[in-house]
Simulated scan of single mutants.
Amino acid sequence: MLSATFPRSGPRPPRQRRWPSKNSCKIPERCPQVRPVFSTAPDDGRKYVQHRLWADRADVVELVKQGATVYVCGDGKHMAPEVRDTCALIYREATGASAADADAWMDEVERTHGRYVADIFT
């Protein structure tokens, strides 16, 4: 099974968030990695989900090569387009593709393969 990476963003400071305990997962290699990011407490320039994705892009590339599915849930006005653009930029950097080719790849991954899934609201 593929281990997934989940960047998460939230308005609350880190000390007020509740994350699953490392001890709560029964099969460690199947446990998701939670890599939080907080808009109210930026860490090393990372304030939003797209910043965390970009910082972790080497891992994102490897996970996608292994067949990972990217799930995006949240704000459709600002966050979702920025995350999609960041994924396209990661693809461009990893492959040398043009912006048009990266956009076409994102469309294919989303519509044909179902490996980019957005559940967004406005």
Rank of each mutant, 00 (worst) to 15 (best):
residue 11 P to F: 06
residue 11 P to R: 05
residue 13 P to I: 09
residue 14 P to Q: 09
residue 14 P to C: 02
residue 15 R to S: 10
residue 16 Q to I: 12
residue 18 R to L: 15
residue 20 P to Q: 00
residue 20 P to W: 01
residue 21 S to Q: 06
residue 21 S to R: 04
residue 22 K to P: 15
residue 22 K to C: 09
residue 23 N to V: 08
residue 24 S to V: 03
residue 24 S to F: 02
residue 25 C to G: 09
residue 26 K to Q: 09
residue 26 K to N: 04
residue 27 I to D: 09
residue 28 P to H: 02
residue 29 E to C: 02
residue 29 E to S: 01
residue 29 E to R: 04
residue 30 R to G: 03
residue 30 R to Y: 03
residue 31 C to M: 03
residue 31 C to E: 07
residue 34 V to W: 14
residue 34 V to H: 10
residue 36 P to A: 03
residue 36 P to D: 02
residue 36 P to M: 05
residue 36 P to Y: 01
residue 38 F to A: 05
residue 39 S to A: 09
residue 39 S to R: 14
residue 39 S to D: 12
residue 39 S to N: 09
residue 39 S to H: 06
residue 41 A to Q: 12
residue 41 A to E: 12
residue 42 P to S: 01
residue 43 D to L: 10
residue 44 D to E: 11
residue 45 G to R: 00
residue 46 R to E: 14
residue 48 Y to D: 03
residue 48 Y to Q: 04
residue 48 Y to P: 04
residue 48 Y to A: 02
residue 48 Y to R: 05
residue 49 V to D: 01
residue 50 Q to S: 01
residue 52 R to T: 10
residue 52 R to L: 11
residue 52 R to A: 15
residue 52 R to E: 14
residue 53 L to I: 06
residue 54 W to T: 01
residue 54 W to I: 02
residue 55 A to W: 00
residue 55 A to E: 08
residue 56 D to L: 13
residue 58 A to D: 07
residue 59 D to F: 00
residue 59 D to Q: 03
residue 59 D to Y: 00
residue 60 V to S: 04
residue 60 V to L: 05
residue 60 V to M: 06
residue 61 V to F: 00
residue 61 V to Q: 04
residue 61 V to R: 05
residue 62 E to I: 00
residue 62 E to Q: 07
residue 63 L to R: 13
residue 63 L to N: 06
residue 65 K to T: 03
residue 65 K to G: 04
residue 66 Q to N: 04
residue 66 Q to I: 01
residue 68 A to K: 11
residue 68 A to T: 08
residue 68 A to W: 13
residue 69 T to Y: 02
residue 70 V to R: 05
residue 72 V to W: 07
residue 73 C to P: 08
residue 73 C to A: 12
residue 74 G to M: 13
residue 74 G to N: 09
residue 75 D to Y: 04
residue 76 G to I: 13
residue 77 K to A: 14
residue 79 M to W: 05
residue 80 A to K: 06
residue 81 P to L: 12
residue 83 V to M: 03
residue 83 V to K: 01
residue 84 R to P: 06
residue 84 R to A: 15
residue 84 R to N: 05
residue 86 T to Y: 09
residue 86 T to D: 08
residue 87 C to P: 10
residue 88 A to Q: 12
residue 88 A to P: 14
residue 90 I to D: 02
residue 91 Y to D: 14
residue 94 A to V: 10
residue 94 A to G: 08
residue 96 G to L: 12
residue 96 G to M: 11
residue 97 A to H: 07
residue 97 A to V: 10
residue 97 A to T: 02
residue 99 A to P: 06
residue 99 A to M: 10
residue 99 A to H: 13
residue 99 A to C: 06
residue 100 A to Q: 15
residue 101 D to Q: 09
residue 102 A to K: 12
residue 105 W to G: 01
residue 107 D to T: 12
residue 108 E to L: 13
residue 108 E to P: 05
residue 109 V to Q: 15
residue 109 V to D: 08
residue 109 V to H: 08
residue 110 E to D: 12
residue 111 R to Q: 15
residue 111 R to I: 03
residue 112 T to I: 08
residue 113 H to D: 13
residue 114 G to L: 07
residue 114 G to S: 10
residue 115 R to T: 03
residue 116 Y to R: 12
residue 117 V to F: 02
residue 118 A to K: 13
residue 118 A to E: 15
residue 118 A to L: 14
residue 119 D to G: 06
residue 120 I to K: 06
residue 120 I to C: 10
residue 120 I to S: 07
residue 121 F to A: 00
residue 122 T to H: 14
